[in-house]
Amino acid sequence: MLSIKNIHANIEGKEILKGINLEIKAGEVHAIMGPNGSGKSTLASVLAGREEYEVTEGEVTFLEKDLLELSTEDRAREGLFLAFQYPVEIPGVSTTNFIKAAVNEKRKYQGEEPLDAVAFLKIMKQKMALVEIDQSLLSRSINEGFSGGEKKRNEVFQMAMLEPKLAILDETDSGLDIDALRIVANGINKLRNENRAILLITHYQRLLDYIQPDYVHVLYNGKIVKSGTKELALELEDKGYDFITDEADLAASL
């Protein structure tokens, strides 16, 4: 589904990603872990199409298309979804209207009729129950005055509504207490299926207690320095990042 080959990316002339390779197939859940500043969020931003980042080398194929050639909105309409680490507050735009516009833009792109108000509300009710989000939040302006947990729940709700083929969850666990984390993780688990791939980006192992990944990769200094199964995450939790980063630094110095 997603094939990343030797991606290098800069922001303001500084190289952050230094040759990343990653293959993700439908139905798989991959976790990318790594210390602060390793390039985790940059990878998410590059995949979603944030314009400040410049890709200097490499290629990304998403569902047989050259992802880097697509605009941000076309990537979304092709089925890529980014759950933001810091969801943006947008005063004056109602959450419901926004999600309806997004759903119908995607349908239009795929040659489907837009949903009418009744059909949209019906689907919305189902998905609200799925991610345990309250109607009152959705009638407010996008994320305006939402708590950290409410913002993250709203991201997962949008994911449920847009039914992406690939969901990238950028530090979705950050800033959540244990109850909020459980609710958000439950929502994500319910959205897991054999046609959908999920890329979890996280600093901590605790999210992976709730969402069991098929593969774990460690990103350090702009490169994936180690890949493994979920046991790798447990090992990291146990020994800290040092046991991998020291090894990587040593390898780089030789």
Partner: peptide, 19 residues
């Protein structure tokens, strides 16, 4: 944020300006 949800640039601009 709006574009990352599939709303085209022009429509996103209209949404923000209307708001």
């Amino acid at each position: 944020y709006l574009r990352a949800r599939g709303i085209p640039k022009e429509a996103a601009e209209v949404l923000l300006l209307e708001a």
